[in-house]
Design a protein around this nucleic acid. Structure first.
Lengths: 149, 149
DNA sequence: TCTTGCGTTCAAAATAACTTGAACTGCTTT
DNA sequence: AAAGCAGTTCAAGTTATTTTGAACGCAAGA
């Protein structure tokens, strides 16, 4: 089962430990601590700590409330909307945004091209890219909406 | 500009050389041969050959027609629908399918669980995963349709 | 205040992924 | 038939990513 998630996160370009951690939390009937993860998965404390942090920023795990213990326990977020939302926010949007910025720079450069025929070709290509990015940007909220119930 | 595509394919989990090759073809006013790629990008013949093959199976490049030369020339596919379609077919679907298979195996295993309360918990989790995969599968054609014009 | 223990950090080690290049296949030309 | 060229293959080398583990910071208990 953990393997299932390991494959899953790999597809998304995330490290294997994230899949292991999330997978274990997902099949666990009760919240687990960092030490539990180290114990059951046989990974280092460092990995577990970093993995949990990433999963938290992705909104894929949260701290479990109401434990007397000094250590903190974690449980998985199990609704798809939230998971997809976190992934888009943390992994997709930043790339889209930096892509748009780069494209602007490229567009500036293309204007300096001497040969007018070549210049036209370049601006045409650039416009095409811009339309791709725009569509991508429009796509994300739709995707999120359709997946979230 | 080539950099732009290198980043792009990295996000998709594809090797840098694919981005370089596609990027160069994309900004090139005329089709290029394998040797052109080796020359302009400074990559090895092996990389260029493998990269072109992958791009062909993704439907991201095609052989240019009508050249007298013995060698083959390539041009990029520039419509988003085709690109997205190829990516889904080659990269996304296979993972979704293998995921479904694994999930079935897991479901079988869960039935063998002794404790009825645990068993219920597991089957609940598994059902949730199944619904995720199903939604993902339904999503793909919609995505393709919306992106393709 | 000192000690104990949870959790974080980060440089170094381990692992995974990509690229190279030399040997090879098959086709063309001489 | 031999030589030449376009393109492929794959083991070995290189590069990039991930994991480890020891040192650290911080808060709670003694």
């Amino acid at each position: 089962m953990v393997d299932f998630f390991v494959d899953g996160v790999k597809v998304l370009g995330l490290p294997r430990s994230l899949g292991e951690i999330y997978g274990l939390l997902f099949v666990s009937t009760n919240p687990l601590s960092l030490d539990d993860l180290v114990l059951y998965l046989g990974i280092s404390k460092g990995s577990a700590s970093q993995g949990l942090r990433t999963l938290r920023t992705l909104g894929a795990v949260r701290e479990a409330s109401g434990n007397d213990d000094r250590r903190t326990y974690y449980e998985p977020a199990v609704d798809l909307k939230r998971l997809v939302g976190g992934f888009i926010r943390e992994q997709v949007r930043p790339h889209l945004d930096s892509g748009k910025t780069k494209l602007q720079t490229i567009a500036e450069t293309a204007k300096l091209c001497d040969d007018p025929l070549e210049r036209e070709f370049f601006t045409d290509r650039i416009e095409r890219l811009e339309s791709w990015m725009k569509r991508g940007g429009q796509m994300l909220p739709i995707l999120q909406k359709l997946l979230g119930q």
